[in-house]
Write a protein that binds this DNA or RNA. Sequence first.
RNA 1: CGGAGUGUAGCGCAGUCUGGUAGCGCACCUGGUUUGGGACCAGGGGGUCGAAGGUUCGAGUCCUUUCACUCCGACCA
Length: 568
Amino acid sequence: MRFSRLLVPTTKETPNDATLASHIYLIRGGFIQSVGGSGLYNFLPLGKKVLDKVRAVVKEELDKVGCQEVSLSFVTPASLWKESGRFEKYGKELLRFKDRKNNDFILGPTHEEMMVNLVRQTVKSYKQLPLNLYQINLKFRDEIRPRFGLMRGREFLMKDGYSFHASSEDMKREFDLMETTYKKIFSRLGLEFRVVEADSGAIGGSGSKEFMVLADSGEDTIVVCDKCDYGANIEAAVRKEKGCEVEAPEAIFSKFHTPDTKTIEALSAFFHVDPYYLVKTVAKKALYDEDRSEVVLFALRGSDELQEVKACNAVNANDLVDITEEELTEIGLVPGYMGPTTAPEGVKVVYDYNMKDADSMICGSNEEAYHLVGNSFKGVDADFADLVAVQEGDLCSCCGSPLRYTKGIEAGHIFQLGTQYSEPLGATFLDENGKAQPMVMGTYGIGVSRLLAAIIEQNHDDRGCIWTKESAPFDLQIIVSNIKDEAQVTLGEKLYDSMLEKGVDVLLDERKDRFGAKMKDYELLGVPHAVVIGKKLADGLVEFVTRKGMLKDEVSVDEIETLLKERF
RNA sequence: CGGAGUGUAGCGCAGUCUGGUAGCGCACCUGGUUUGGGACCAGGGGGUCGAAGGUUCGAGUCCUUUCACUCCGACCA
């Protein structure tokens, strides 16, 4: 491609709404263009090229392990979503609309229903299983707050795959195969990533793993162990049971006057007791289907923090929301002095596992200015669940080393779904005995357009993008410094032709602009390598440039063509 | 959804307080000079000032309503 013919509107100015490096450089480099609508982008020629390259890597690796690509209709009849129950459940992220006949439709935010529908119409026998179908198509999610350019857009390109099996064991096998395949994909794209345990969220299912591209700008906090392989999203992270070096306070059960002692810190100071021996009671309102809600108290050790996603899962709620002090008072709870043992009738209490058999605990009395000391939870019959947010420095449950936090961009997520879609949607097959069974499913996603952002988050400097080998919009850029210099032009054209002939995707910068402008554009676009043909041509030299680090090697004119032929 | 802010040329912004000819930089077009780090000179094109209503002789500017977008938070495969 000739630069003079390429539509790449590079700019010197940073768009005012962009804060993330990937957002800034993708726009300044003319890869994408804001549509004006929130979270919507056009892909310009260069952006489309990169997108296609990433997409090709994904497709290649999936096809290699027997996955088959399909393309499902983006506009989806709502009837399918009503069948699965998600038409009501999915919430405002689901864009609903009507056609001219007043029928309900949605724009697909994910395609479990569509794929199950496809399969239930075509697969009838165990002999046709297993099956792994995927598509790389647009998704639309009407996000509350789209941001960060391609990182969290409303319309985005996603690879979504679905596998169908006759047994859970076979589904597990495919799940592991997908994990391996995803690792290959992210490695080929040159990404530094980590596979972590994850919460399954709205998609549901049992085991799920996320593929986190490591970047400080990532929106997810992940907990990792440096000694072993353990890694988990904070929403799902577990730790080795925590003890306390300080001895338990000795006290017989009694009520204690504790005025103005409403926080864990204050309580700890008041009694000179480690927070480990205090009960933290967090009240939340749990929301369920059909506007049903209930107040739940979550009780955990004062040294721990509540992890809301875990808490939400513990009560099978759709969502947890905060409660105001007024609401608390109304149902008979005393803010600052709540305790799990004295909760009013009808208020559900869930204990964290670390509270099991806890002894010598101090907790609220649910009476203004009083706490209860000397509580024992030995043998208490109650609801227990994992509720704690793993902290930095907590110990790894696998190897006992300290855990640490890091930030990641969720680029892929794989789920063991089971039969939660196949059953309600009636996707069954006949087994060897001629008996109808629901298919066991897995589902696997990769945020393809988000990957562009992730690649740049991990690979950029203060001058622009640095694309990795398999994601780069071009393999090589040839820069003719001064097009008035005939010798430079001749050599540039010759190298260009020879690279084209070899099948190298090469960009020839033969614009009239000055050297500085061309280099700025080169740095902004981030093609991995360039040949600069400039003033030193008079001495028989050109420069071979590596974008990463902007390394420049002088190469003699006689050797450059050979060198390029070897490298590309 | 709560808090804050912004809408003026393709992009980045000034002008609004104190009403009176629509401005600047980048980009774009023409001509010329220039060519190793985003050149220079001269000339030029491009605007329903987010929308609707109101006040006024006169509104980008004042008043009312409304829409959109952005940021922080909450939220989120």
